[in-house]
Every structure is written in C-alpha cells, then in structure tokens.
Design a protein around this nucleic acid. Structure first.
Lengths: 371, 371
DNA sequence: CTGAAAGCGCTAACAC
DNA sequence: GTGTTAGCGCTTTCAG
C-alpha cells in the first residue's frame, strides 16, 4: 500500500479530489479515487507523458500514426507505472470483451476436463479468456448459463447442451450470436460444431473385433437420445451387416453412458443362452461396469469375453486388463472448437463449419483372438 | 432477427440514429445501434415505461423508494422485452463484476476437476461467475493469469500456485486484492486459505497400517517442495515414532507426485534386503506406479505388500485390488474456497481465515493384516 | 501526428 | 417517489 500512496503520480493527479465513489471506507480525507484498488488509469499515464488520453489509447491499441518518440515515451511510462488497461471499460467502449463462454454438462465426467483444457489453452493463445459454467445436464441451468454469458457480454459461446434444448440454440442463432457446439451436435441447428465421426469410430471397433475372428459381437449402446449414441449404434449395425453376421436384437442392449447401465447390460448379456464372444460398449464408463459384471459371473477378460470401449479415458489404461478402446481427441476437440468460435466471432459473414475429428483404436489387453 | 427489427420499441427509439459504432456491417440505412446484437438498453425500457433510466435502474437493483405501481409496470416491460442489463456497463459503474477468477495448475490432473466443480457451483449459487485459467505449474503463466484476471477486473481470485511463486501473492496482498489459496498453501503469505490437515491425514493412514499389525512401514513422499509433501511426511514420521517403530531412512523414498516416481520408489523398496510390509504413498497416482512395480516384481497386493494412497481419485476404486486411501473432500474444498473468497470480497476488514477440512480413510482391498 | 469531446450502458448523488 | 446529471475508464470520430 505504502508505495501507492506516496507514489508521485497520485499527488499530481487532477482527479485526486473526485468524489470517492463506492469506496467510502477509505481513510477520511486522503486523496483517493473511486476505483477499488487505486488502479492507475489511462489519464494518469497521459499526464505523466504530457499527452492526451487519445494518444495513450493509440499506443495501447497499436494504432498507426503516432510519433515514434512519443510512442516510446508512453510505453516506457506504462511499464514504469505497471499500468494495465481496465478491461471492463475497454469492453464497454469497444463492445467486445475478449472473453468466451464455455458451457459443459459435467466437469467430473473424465471426458470433459481435456476439452476444457484444450479450449482454455487455445483461447488464451488467441487472446481470449474463458468463463466457465457447468450445467449438470439440467435444461434450466443451460438456459441460465447462456443468459449469464450473454449478460456478461462474452464474445461467443462454446457449448455442449443436453439432448433437447434446441430452443436456446435457436435463440442464439436468431440473434446471430456466435457459438459452436462441442461433441454433442443437435443437427437441426444451423451452426458450427466440432465433433467426431461416430459411425466411423464404431466401425473401427467392430471391424477390429471381426478381424480378431469374433462372429458373435454384442453392443451396449449409449444414450439413444444423443447423436453420439445413435451414430455409434449405426456404425455397429453397418459393420455387422457388411460382414454378413446376423444382428441379434438380444445382443444389442440399451445403455445410457453410466457405469451402472454397463454393468447391468453386461450381466444380462452373460445370462443369454447364446452368449456373445465380444462386446463393444459405447463408452469406457459402461465398459468398466461390464468388467465388474464379468468378474461377478466369473468370466475372464479377454479369455472368455473380449471388450472394447470408447473414449479412452484415463482409467482405460490403468485398469486390468487394460481396456481396448476407441480414442477421441478430446484435447484437440477443445482446441478446434475455440479456433472455430474465434474465427466466427471475427468474421462478418457467419458461415457454418463442421469440423469432424478422427478417432483411433487403441489396442490393449481386453480383447483376444477368438479360438 | 425479424422480430427484433419490427419490434415496436425500436421504431420509437430516440437513439435509433446514433452512430453505428463498431457495427458497420449492418444493412446500410436501417435504424441501428452501436451494440452488436441490438440488445435492448435501460433507455429502451425507460421509454416504454415512460420513466427515467434512474427509476428503471432502481427496480433493477431492488432499491427501495419506488412506487409499487411503477415498479410492477417496469418489471412487466422488462419481462416482455426480454431485457437483460449489460453486465459490462454495470461493472464499470459499480466497480465490481460479480466474477471471480480461478487459477489452477492442471485440470487434467484428476484431483482438480472436483475443486473446479465445487467453486463453480458455489459461486453460481452466490451470484458470481467463474473465469478459469490453467497454468501447467508454469510460473510465467501464473503471473500472466493473475494479471489477466486483474485486467478483467474480477472481484477476487481463487488460486493454487506452484511452489515458489510467493512474489505474485505478495503483490496481491499489498494491493489488498481478495484471494484465497486452495490446497497449496504458501505459509509466509498472510491470506485466507482452504486446505486439509495433511499431518493428520498421514497419521490416519499410518495408524491404520499399524493397527493392521504392520511394523515395517515405508513412505513414498510427495514433492517435498510443497507443503502437502512436507506435512504428510511429518505425519508419517510422527506416528512411527509414537509407536516406537524405528524410522529407517531406507524406507523413506522421495517422490514427486508422478506415477513414474511412485513406480521407481516402489521398485527400489522391493529391492531392499529388509523389505517393508506396507507402504504409504503421498498420493494415489504414485500408488498406481507402485502397483505396477509390485506386479513386475511378482509381489501380490495385499498378500505380500499392503498399499495405502492419498487423495481418493476416481481410479482408486476401479483398479484391482481397489486402493485403500485417504480421501480428500475436493468438491468441498472448492465450495469452501468460494464461500471464503466471496466473504472476503464483501467485507471491509480483511481478516484472514484458514479453513481446514478433514480427511477420511477409505478402506479397500490393497491392505491386509500382517501375519 | 495529436487533442477535444462524445459516447459505450449503467449507477448514484442530489435536487425537486 | 422520481428525474437530472455526472461520472466509471476507455475508444473513436472529427478537427486541426
């Protein structure tokens, strides 16, 4: 504190006697200013440099047409004074905040932190910062979050909304508010998005099993109200048909992406009289549930049953046997989404781009050749 | 768009001919306004209601002294027009943004997402939103992040800085800028913090092993440049001494919280001629490394060696054998930190509070009675 | 190349 | 109770 108070620039500040604003607590008759932490303003710098605020603003914003000498001088003072422009004031004046919103359902789902990391890293790199909301898949929260972001005047939003909240997206669209959908794509909405090719990903998993000699392949689907769930199932069915294997409805169990649903699906699969020799789970979490069921029923993985998951969450490589799975580039998903959004923000014309990232099968220990 | 353009309030808006500001792209000679998405302003509402902006502002801020009728009328119009105050303008006028910053080293470390979730949920509940930065334990990034937050005029910061970045904290402190340290506490700094009692946590782990009959207990420490590392080791030593077991230096291996260091420490422990019967790892990740080493050396857990971890990350319950560990209330850590920060923000006097949360030993399958 | 001044949307004295 | 007005700190015409 001390050095601020005795700092010379304050004593010559012509605003030193302005009304104290919201800061009534400050020592009675000291020279003070409204802003809470006595932050320096562009005025202070202008005075020190003996120029107008306009000129300081020019160098702050790298505008051309400012004398090299004055520019150097101003820059020096800015550095000396450790001045930092007030982003809020700037935001108000420029009508952009260099902030983007990120709305995801659930950060404790191991799928999302990497996405967050990707978007954070990329936004930062491009000069934006991230304001973060979690919605717990709750429709009300989703609306609240979007409203919040808009009231905070973010320049755009990255979001991953629950199944049936088109409404909010439509509103954004009508207002021409920049946004990009991550991972979960609501197809009726005309917008940019970054997703993976889920059909293709599923194909990779099932083809791999077939190459290993499996002919009886089951599938535990994801939530079939989501695109990801639907598409992965589609991929599964496609490959089965292409290889002239019969699609047994008994071998398709509907899950919902929770471990529990994986557990239960696997249990009923293993209760069948004609059991599959392999099962493809629409995500790793469910596969984990499958492990538990297999263990309880004394099925050895992969000797008695092969398992393939989807996502490649951290745990996949740590459990035993390590889980063969289809890896999604989550970090990259975050990166690309941020890139796309910022591009959309800075373009006059909104043309919508769909970025589709590729997946990769990671072979581990949960799958074996069928004898 | 259509309904905005034909919306009656626009046609009577006296500001309709203001300069177009940054929005030159808008259809040439239409009535337009500077702000990007033609958002309504408090002026619009005031006009519709036939009152001054001051009055609208009053109802917006729930100030007393406004006629019930006019209040109702204004509220109705606000709802009809779907008006939402501009947070940036508000921030500038009030000198507070209702935003807090969260700075953590690494969101992909499974330890942190829960903290993020906790702070997000709690801040939201208290009317604040979160702006998020990740630093990868990089000192430069830490400074950048703090500067960023300050330039965005957050009302306070939650942070978990790397070992030796006192400097930045000291600066915050000097400026009387509200902040609270999470998990990692730099003791020389006078500030609020939310941490766990690490000595006590370690005691729980080691006492438990002793109760199980173990007399030869090793410890793989965390990074000893962190408080958490130091304190856990302290706890370990304390219990060993209290129980009159000898502290063997050979049984204390210095790790750094990475899986790899756990792996290597365990390997050298198992190479000893006098092997421990149990080892307490300062975090779960290292314990995981320990699993791998044990496996390679054909030591069965828990039959040949017992293992206790620390943190209770997700994986702990999923690996086999499931890991006995000391659980930290990470979600709660996030919650309490947010509460404390917001309290600090709204208090005139900064008195610093240390909130110390308790831990809990979770017994699973990686520990056995010693014969 | 630089300065004066108007404004971004809102709040908060102060007056009536 | 309500309106007037002067800011909040910065950007951006428009003159010169």
């Amino acid at each position: 504190m001390i050095d601020f108070i005795s700092s010379p620039h304050l004593s010559i500040n012509i605003f030193a006697f302005k009304t104290a604003g919201g800061c009534q607590q400050s020592p009675a008759d000291w020279k003070t200013r409204g802003n809470k932490f006595m932050d320096k303003t562009i005025e202070d710098i202008a005075q020190k440099a003996g120029v107008s605020t306009a000129t300081v603003s020019r160098v702050l914003n790298n505008k051309p047409d400012v004398n090299d000498e004055t520019k150097k001088k101003i820059e020096k003072i800015i550095k000396e004074e450790d001045y930092m422009p007030n982003g809020i004031a700037r935001g108000l004046a420029k009508n952009k905040t260099l902030t983007i919103g990120l709305i995801i359902p659930d950060i404790s789902n191991p799928y999302f932190p990497e996405i967050v990391r990707g978007s954070e890293n990329q936004s930062k790199k491009m000069g934006y910062s991230l304001i973060f909301c979690e919605t717990q898949n709750n429709k009300k929260e989703e609306k609240r979050s979007i409203d919040l972001m808009r009231s905070k005047r973010v320049d755009g939003i990255l979001l991953s909304l629950s199944k049936n909240n088109k409404q909010e997206l439509i509103k954004l669209q009508e207002d021409q508010f920049p946004f990009v959908q991550i991972d979960r794509f609501i197809p009726e909405i005309q917008s940019s998005c970054v997703i993976i090719n889920n059909v293709n990903a599923a194909c990779k998993a099932v083809n791999y099993l077939i190459k290993k000699g499996h002919k009886k392949i089951a599938h535990v689907t994801g939530d079939l109200k989501t695109q990801t769930g639907i598409k992965r199932k589609e991929g599964y069915q496609k490959v089965i048909q292409e290889n002239n294997l019969k699609i047994k409805n008994k071998w398709i169990k509907q899950g919902d992406y929770t471990k529990k649903s994986g557990y239960e699906s696997m249990k009923s699969l293993l209760d069948l009289s004609e059991k599959p020799t392999a099962v493809y789970f629409a995500n790793d979490l469910m596969a984990l549930g499958g492990y538990k069921a297999a263990e309880e029923k004394n099925f050895k993985i992969p000797d008695n049953i092969s398992i393939v998951g989807h996502d490649n969450i951290d745990i996949a490589s740590l459990i035993k046997p390590a889980l063969t799975t289809v890896a999604q580039p989550m970090y990259k998903l975050g990166i690309e989404a941020a890139k796309l959004l910022i591009k959309n923000i800075n373009e006059k014309e909104n043309d919508y781009r769909h970025k589709i990232l590729s997946t990769k099968l990671i072979e581990r220990e949960s799958t074996a050749e069928v004898r």
